[in-house]
Design a protein around this nucleic acid. Sequence first.
RNA 1: GGGCGCUUAGCUCAGUUGGUUCAGAGCGCCUGCCUUACAAGCAGGAGGUCGGCGGUUCGAAUCCGUCAGCGCCCA
Length: 910
Amino acid sequence: MPRTFDPAAVEARILRMWEEGGYFGAAAAEVEAGGDPYVIVIPPPNVTSVLHMGHGLNNTIQDVLIRWRRMRGRVTLWVPGTDHAGIATQNVVERRLAAEGRTRHDLGREAFVERVWEHVRVTGDRILGQLKAIGCSCDWTRARFTLDEGLSQAVREIFVRLYEDDLIYRGEYIINWCPRCLTALSNEEAEGAEAGGSLWHIRYPLAPGHGEAAAAARAAGAGAVNRLADGRWHLTVSTTRPETMLGDTGVAVNPADPRYGSLVGAAAELPLTGRTIPIVADRHVSAEFGTGMVKVTPAHDPNDFEIAARTGLEVLDVMTERAAMNENAPAAFRGLDRIDARRAVVEALAGEGLLAGRDDHDHAVPRCYRCDTVVEPRLSEQWFVRMKPLAEPALAASRDGAVTFAPGRWTRVYEQWMENIRDWCISRQLWWGHRIPVWYCGDCGAEMACRRDPTVCGACGSAAIEQDPDVLDTWFSSWLWPFSVFGWPEDNRDLRAFYPGHTLSTAPEILFFWVARMIMAGYHAMGDAPFARVYLHGTVRDIQGRKMSKSLGNGVDPLEVVERFGADALRFTVLAGAGVGADIRLDHEDLESAFAPGRNFVNKLWNAGRFALMSLGDEPIRPLAEVLEDLELEDRWILSRQQHAIRRVDEELEAFRMQGVAEVMRDFFRGEFADWYLESVKHRLRPGGAGREAARSVLVHVLDGICRLLHPMVPFVTEELWGLLPAAGGRKGPLIVARWPAADPALDDPRAEEAFGWLQDLVARVRAIRKEYRVGEGRQVSLRVTGGGRSRVLEGRGEMLGRLARIGSVEVGAPVAGATGASAVLRDGTGLFVPLEGVIDLDRERARAVREVGRLSGVLKGIEAKLANPDFTTRAPGAVVEREREKRESCKLQLTKWNEKLTSLGGLDR
RNA sequence: GGGCGCUUAGCUCAGUUGGUUCAGAGCGCCUGCCUUACAAGCAGGAGGUCGGCGGUUCGAAUCCGUCAGCGCCCA
């Protein structure tokens, strides 16, 4: 066995063993036979490129949950797969084409799609390979891709069903349009980013003949209505986007605004265009904002579009799909990009004296979530899903607890989104994705949503039919994932056995995109939520707190980490850093120290195993039950501590507290087992050592349990070690399917814990004394123990004390008068004295005593003040008061000892 | 504009219903040790007025209010 754990040497072999053994898979028959299923469907990674640390974290979390349940005997199924990621993947491939100087149009639709397939076959395999490398125990035979044949059928089925139920419709509305990707986006795909901008104030001259109305408005307090230099009346509107004024078709005021009542029905001359536009009243307009008068651009603003719908204003589209001004704009602006047009419009207005001013104005500018281009609200014909009916059961699920979120604060976020749900724009003007299953008849104009490709029009029989050219939003396939992976809409055994699933672990960024919609689809298609618990983990960030991203170059490649430090090191590090839902920071420039916590821990475990294997010998190990009568204090102590650890790990895992599991196991395995238990039994494990049999049994039993408890977090090193450990009483199969430990109350031993705790305290004091007086490591000391009722614990522990603190001999009794040495006092008042002739500095020793007396006096004073307070003794719980009393006694005892010591050293003033 | 989260040791973070001897871990740092499991280790140690202020309480890192800084979500 190598001195350090060599992940590269064992991971591949163990992975093969797991896969060949079929431990990752689950069959419907197991559930049908009465098995209790536990199912997770993976959030399918995008096939755009490779996995990053965020995936590393999320998939490690899922694997921990899966392995834990598997060891508890559940029929465990983790379904893996990948997402075609429509717009994102198309963008990646288009960028590659661009590098060759070509566009997708050069290739044509069919060749382009084939080109994307080539890309995703490579990245898809690589992604699954990465998941395997970090140890994910998915059922790889079930791997799915959202564009697979079966999943495509599911997409079609749900589309047609929703269409037939009138929950899908097509219509002309203002949608979010990316002028670079040239496609519609959903509201969720348009991400608002705060940006500094300007608010321009523009004067629109009133059309002739409305002077009286203007004067009336002016009289009613309308400061925004005034006369221009040439005497004409004008009104003032404000906008952050002056270029859209070229598409204005009206001006609106609130009908209840007393200032503008006289102007409703009047008209304004739209500058630069020669058009005259009406002034209308609409309840949407806020009288408080700006001048209380707004320009209305129905084709380029969703609110204005609605105003137009209510008031009958004309809709005039003045932009091209690339957000340049089109032929509906005045000749001077035609062809200008929206940014250039803005500048030109502002200049032109200023030139005509119609620019009233400009203020700085910060506002949210929505950007394309895939290419960051500023999104343009655009009027276009798209497909939508009517969401309100779908949201109802999904909202109820959260309210009645059928679906819960961790951390719980996401519940409100989810519910608020559901309560304010808006229709979902699902058509995309892309080539990569599920084609919309709708055909239009060129002869009779019929529109048909079809489960199978039609050859003729269902209405008139004409063969002149054409499929809708658009594809569906990528999330329109993802939302079906929890049941489409099992073959829905076919009603089969898998679906019945494994739906609904149990836990979903994912990033909060896709709560609306995906989680919420999966719940809606689950209820609509299956009548049940796809999972009961949603864990929303944190974000992996760099050391400066920035999200890891390719463009910043601050990403960490999970494969590089696996190669350098091992999968277990990666897993333990991210888990130990993962508070519930909290972000994780990793230093991408110093992977060595970033992953040291995991690597060091794994290595420590490996070496504890090495030690065990080297000291156990070949003789059979007796089961713990057979040596219970022979257990020593340290045996009973570590067994009792193990029961605590088992209970804690279960609690932590149940609550998704991965960091808590890591902490419990660090404390138990490292802080107690390795640092104390192993050191305490080394002498017993020597050939012929007294109590060897019991020590071997306990050692194997506890280490075996440690491997089991740690297996979900660090599966490779535990599997390897466990396989090498001799088994007490035989065992079947590998660790991955070994039984999860259950706490055994018969092994709880509070008295052993107390006694061993006293011993630990004693050892720590002696070690501290040795350090204080720089007693060399090689030198043994003797120890004199005075008072306290515990000194019997020391009997027969000479070798153990020798190893733990180089204590050569122990005597029990009163201090020897006149001896030179260092003292200490344990909490129970036990006095310790370490004779150190020659090295003792009396002044230093006196200072130690004074320091201790001071500290203890302070503590005692606090306790006594507390106990003297009747409010405390009457209001605090009895147990708390009792504890204070015990503390008081302990302090008094210790003080007495230290004062005696001081006296023997000649008192304070020497 | 509305909402949420965070602020504890040099760094990254725990601290589970308010209550052990005036706050813990990992990494880093200091000192001493290659003690035949482990130097990726062991032992000892330094380092924090728990963001500021105010309040509730016998008692506050923990509950409430407020201010400041940082981050996120929605409009």
